[in-house]
Write a protein that binds this DNA or RNA. Structure first.
Length: 469
RNA sequence: GGCCCCUUCGUCUAGCGGUUAGGACACCGGCCUCUCACGCCGGUAACACGAGUUCGAGUCUCGUAGGGGUCACCA
């Protein structure tokens, strides 16, 4: 069985890079009938916060990635790590190092000056004398000397590093006794039964260290997949400055969770020419072997396009449900289906949708100056008045947009006008600007009575304007 | 700087020794049209460079250049 995990450290919100590796892990496990686990890496008490952990969980809930079983918190497993550190100590595979932080810094500086790679010199590796007093020791693991550590990465291929060149006896327990990252990752991945580790390729260079831990305990290695980073549009590493990194920010901006997932799955992975995937299709087609080797740049326009595609095909009930978050309650809107259909092809996000809907549902607070100047010419007032008269005398049904089209056609015939002569007047009367969905749709949405009110309001406005001139 | 990784249109990518190098976003035309969109049709645009291997290279090998990652008592 395949078991994967996502293991964020709770130092901030969940960002889209993290979400993508989580998605890949989730997909790979679920596709194979396996398990996807969530582990919060909170060993560094100073930098973690409970709120951050909660924020990550909230983001997971929003996108609908559900972990199997309970969430693991490393802070609750300290005794396990301590036991294992003790075990290595007992077996002589790790040792206490009494070098103080100051001494270490001095050594590092010296090495830097000599243009050497800063590296612990192993001075306590075989130390048997009396330890210096007043120093709380750290625990270091013995990394093999003159060995080549080789592993096969599912994305990058065969990777091998020479221990003497790039590794030293790294610290597995700080002087306060708390374990460090590379140690706990290996211990947890082993006990959680992780078979496939899918993570960002910034961890590629940590992998040999974790392998040292695995080997010290004699454990089998999981498979590793190091997925390339996501770059910003400038091709640099995505950072907070690029904005919109927080997954929850996408909710606020009116993106659908499945769109974010769809967008992310295609960033660095593909299945032929397919752009749009349902969750079932992602599960069917995803395979980490198809993940690209190179980093990919974040492309906000494509995300927007994808969101628009999904909105175009979204159900009415889903619209009603999602729009509540944006302060738009469609429950009492009589022609909500006409509203939705009129706007779904004009709004790329739910946020934009709710703004545009508001412009139709609420009476315009003012009339856009440019539109007034361009379309409300001298005869506009008369045309509008004639329209109100015609509307008052109109006895046919006014229920669907086509009924309003009949209304307009009749009006144009009677007064020998062109559609152009009336369309913008009605539009401005209803939404206050020269841009909106079809006038038949928006007339239908607000209904006959409201239509009359709004056209009259516009007539009043024009009268006032004409008086001033 | 050492080590590791990467390199096809502006961007996401397809390609797995023989292709007019395909698709998508964006962009530019045109059509549709009551405005704006949507939709439809069409277009511009890429194999980083240099050597090999081969009858033949985007595809294999090696260099060069460029980009990224990483070198903590952070994760």
């Amino acid at each position: 069985m395949i078991v994967t995990r996502f293991a964020p450290s709770p130092t901030g919100y969940l960002h889209i890079g993290g979400l993508r590796t989580a998605l890949y892990s989730y997909l790979w496990a679920k596709k194979n009938g396996g398990k996807f686990l969530l582990r919060i890496e909170d060993t560094d008490l100073k930098r973690n916060s409970l709120e951050a952990a909660k924020a990550i969980e909230e983001a997971f809930r929003w996108v609908g990635l559900k972990q199997d079983g309970d969430i693991y918190y490393q802070s609750k497993r300290m005794n396990v790590y301590k036991e294992h550190i003790q075990k290595l100590l007992n077996e002589g595979k790790a040792y206490y190092c009494y070098m103080s932080k100051d001494e270490l810094d001095a050594l590092r500086e010296e090495q830097m000056k000599a243009k050497q790679r800063p590296r612990y010199d192993g001075r306590y590796r075989d130390f048997t004398g009396t330890p210096p007093s007043g120093v709380e020791p750290v625990v270091r693991i013995k990394t093999p000397i003159s060995e080549t550590i080789t592993f096969s990465d599912g994305i990058k291929g065969e990777i091998s590093v020479k221990t003497d060149e790039v590794m030293d006896d790294f610290i597995i327990a700080r002087s306060d006794g708390t374990p460090t990252y590379n140690f706990v990752v290996a211990v947890d991945d082993h006990y959680m039964g992780i078979t496939d580790v899918i993570r960002g390729d910034d961890h590629l260079s940590n992998t040999p260290k974790q392998i040292v831990v695995y080997k010290a305990f004699g454990w089998d290695l999981p498979k590793f997949y190091h997925v390339p980073m996501i770059l910003n549009p400038q091709g640099k590493k995505l950072s907070k400055r690029d904005g919109a990194m927080d997954v929850m920010e996408y909710k606020k901006e009116g993106y659908l969770p499945e769109v974010l997932l769809n967008f992310l799955v295609r960033l660095g992975w593909s299945h032929g020419d397919q752009e749009i995937f349902t969750m079932d299709e992602m599960l069917e087609f995803f395979d980490p072997k198809d993940i690209n080797k190179s980093a990919s740049a974040y492309n906000a326009e494509k995300l927007l396009w994808l969101n628009a595609e999904f909105i175009k095909n979204m159900s009415y009930v889903r619209f009603e449900k999602e729009l509540i978050y944006f302060g738009l309650d469609l429950k009492n809107v009589d022609k909500k289906e006409v509203l939705i259909d009129a706007l779904r092809e004009r709004a790329k996000t739910l946020k934009e949708f709710s703004q545009k809907a508001g412009a139709i549902l609420e009476r315009p607070a003012s009339y856009e100056a440019k539109a007034v100047k361009k379309f409300l010419k001298a005869n506009a007032k008369e045309v509008a008045k004639e329209f109100v008269n015609y509307l008052n005398g109109y006895k046919e049904d006014l229920d669907i947009p086509a009924d309003y089209e009949k209304l307009i056609v009749g009006f144009l015939e009677q007064y020998n006008l062109k559609l152009k002569d009336i369309a913008q007047i009605i539009r401005i009367a209803i939404v206050g600007s020269a841009v909106s969905p079809s006038i038949y749709d928006i007339m239908c949405i607000i209904g006959k009575d409201e239509l009359e009110i709004r056209v009259n309001n516009l007539i009043q406005f024009m009268e006032k304007r004409d008086e001033q001139n």
